[in-house]
Design a protein around this nucleic acid. Structure first.
Length: 573
RNA sequence: GGGGCUGUAGCUCAGUUGGAUAGAGCAGCGACCUUCUAAGUCGUUGGUCGUGCGUUCGAGUCGCACCAGCCCCGCCA
């Protein structure tokens, strides 16, 4: 099926073609700037050049020779200088868009572009035996939003949480537990204690070499499948994942799999052997396996000289596993920008070995979070911000606002609204701008409840719900849609019609901010409508009913948009 | 030394097959609550689009060179 604006664009191209004066390949369309009173433009420069005419002359000749069908979505055609401008027919637009939203409901805006295509999305990836912190929130939030967006585009999507549950540092975790005991705290507090033990052990090992030895021994026992080591390790995994799940639940995150790095341990010898067999990698005299001269990339290692494996080894095994397990057309890595080179090397290596030749390997790099003074966040610096406390703080601040603005809500609902608003603010802070940019942690901006903020979007939605609640109507009567010709109504309807295109663009650009931007503009358009067009007190009952339908459509569309971002849409606040 | 990302209003950001007068929010100033949620709406102030060349009817957008910030460049992840 085609959405209204797609049909409008098709129609514009077709009426230009029907004049017989412009070759099809020269029919291009552009969206006019907001100061131009038109919805689609045909810049006549190229076509005029081909005909040897001045562009304004061609534009006006075309305008004169275009004829419109009686039921056309095009309301007006006019030449303005070298541009041929087309305007939507407001009444037919209103009828078409409201019918679409009413019919599709929660599926409004979705497409079937990705039918029969599988995308694997690698995101979140917290480290075992550690708390999640701001370093993990970006991958988690951006990744989940991309998953939502691709699903809405019709793709089959598998999310995989590539847990940091293996590697050299795990020996230290286990040795520290042996020496200091298992923390008896629960949840994040237990992880905090484990982190402290880790730091204490690492510090002590500096002048007690036997501690270093013990850690290596534990690491070895773990790799060899020793039962006690494996039990301790499993305890750490369960503890961490239980704590992580609470954060995921609050953030609306659901990740299908969590294979983790450890899952690939037994595949590593074969992977290294394959790279050597295919001549992509070479074993140096010292024993290390290196990859050199690959697509002008810097040399990198697949195996250490002591026989140990590396991040790269496990990542390579991971790609190969995903290719056979899921047969994806695309694998998307939602990983920070500092790892850009590592992933370029991984992708090049995979291709050089003859794998993933029909699969797109994509790195969606996001910027780093810095503190207010421009320093990277780190435990060592003492400026680390942990995810759970970040969310708690956001919710606490939101609760204070709810108490002040809506003192009459039941206590339970106040808490629920504060949770939605606080968590929504944190999520929106990561999604409202291009993910490539670095972020400076600024509480006031992050938790803003005005302007371009999650709260503003939620508030707009709640206002829609409030009108429908008071009208005791669901806005499903769209028979009077053609009455919606007030500029604020037309403008809002046009914008609702843009959601399908915004969704497609968000997918093509891997850019949740396109959806955020659409939501924000929707809220602004609704704000103007809200001020200028009374719904409950509309002058006629038919108009009231049409406006109720528009309010319902706005609420529907906003819920879709917020849902794509992973932000809740309370009905009251 | 090589490579990646970024540079647009005082601050945070949009501006993508090159198109018409470069747009928002925040901050500042001013207006609007006996009318559907003022967490709102309207008005106003604020710009050598990092710099310089080039490509063309036309450049914030494309190319080249430079400048600044962040990040990366084999035995961590």
């Amino acid at each position: 099926m085609k959405y209204t604006l797609e049909r409008f664009t098709d129609e514009v191209r077709s009426v230009i073609a029907a004049t017989g004066r412009v070759a099809p390949e020269l029919i291009e369309t552009a969206t006019p700037k907001s100061n131009i009173p038109a919805d689609l433009a045909f810049p006549a420069f190229r076509a005029a050049k081909a005909l040897g005419l001045p562009p304004p002359q061609l534009a006006s000749e075309l305008a004169a020779s275009i004829t419109l069908a009686p039921d056309s979505l095009i309301g007006a055609v006019s030449a303005t200088g070298p541009f041929l401008n087309f305007s939507l027919h407001p009444q037919r637009l209103a009828e078409a868009v409201l019918a679409e939203v009413a019919q599709m409901g929660a599926a409004y805006g979705t497409h079937t572009d990705g039918a029969d295509q599988m995308i694997v999305v690698d995101y979140s990836a917290p480290n075992i035996a550690k708390r999640m912190h701001v370093g993990h929130i970006r991958s988690t939030i951006i990744g989940q939003s991309l998953v939502n967006i691709f699903r809405a585009l019709g793709y089959t999507v598998v999310g995989d949480n590539h847990l940091g549950d293996w590697g050299k540092q795990f020996g230290v975790v286990l040795a520290a537990i042996e020496l200091y005991g298992r923390p008896d705290a629960v949840g994040e507090a237990a992880l905090e204690a484990l982190e402290a033990q880790y730091a204490r052990y690492a510090a002590a090992a500096k002048d007690q070499p036997q501690l270093d030895e013990a850690a290596r021994h534990w690491s070895l026992r773990l790799e060899q499948g020793d039962a006690q080591a494996r039990d301790l390790w499993q305890w750490c995994v369960d503890l961490t994942m239980h704590a992580a799940q609470r954060n995921y639940d609050r953030l609306g995150v659901h990740i299908d799999h969590a294979y983790g790095e450890s899952f690939y341990e037994h595949m590593l010898p074969d992977v290294i052997a394959e790279a050597l067999d295919k001549g992509v990698a070479q074993r140096e005299e010292g024993g290390a396996v290196v990859i050199t001269d690959l697509e002008k990339l810097p040399t990198f290692l697949l195996q250490r000289s002591d026989g140990g494996t590396l991040y790269m080894t496990r990542d390579l095994a991971t790609v190969l596993f995903r290719l056979t397990e899921f047969k994806p057309t695309r694998i998307v890595y939602v990983v920070g920008e500092p790892q850009a080179l590592h992933l370029r090397q991984l992708f090049a290596l995979t291709h050089a070995m003859g794998h993933a030749l029909a699969t797109d390997l994509v790195h969606i790099a996001f910027g780093t979070v810095f503190d207010a003074s421009g320093q990277p966040l780190s435990t060592r610096r003492g400026n680390m911000v942990y995810l759970e406390s970040l969310l708690d703080e956001a919710v606490a601040r939101a609760l204070a606002v709810v108490e002040q603005k809506s003192p009459d809500l039941p206590a339970e609902e106040k808490q629920a609204v504060a949770e939605a608003v606080g968590v929504g603010a944190v999520v929106y802070n990561d999604l409202y701008q291009d993910t490539k940019r670095n972020i400076t942690l600024d509480w006031d901006r992050m938790l803003a409840t005005e302007g371009n903020s999650a709260t503003y979007l939620q508030y707009s939605h709640a206002r829609c719900c409030s009108i429908l609640r008071r009208a005791e109507a669901d806005g499903s009567d769209i028979t009077h849609a053609a009455l919606l010709i007030h500029p604020a109504e037309v403008s809002l309807i046009k914008h609702l019609a843009r959601l399908p295109a915004a969704l497609r663009e968000a997918g093509e650009r891997y850019a949740p901010f396109v959806i955020a931007d659409w939501c924000y503009t929707t809220a602004r358009e609704f704000g103007v409508f809200f001020e200028q067009c009374p719904v409950l007190k509309a002058e006629q009952s038919a108009l009231r009913s049409a406006r109720l339908a528009l309010v319902a459509a706005t609420a529907h569309a906003l819920r879709v948009g917020l849902g794509l971002l992973g932000i809740q849409a309370p009905e009251r606040m």
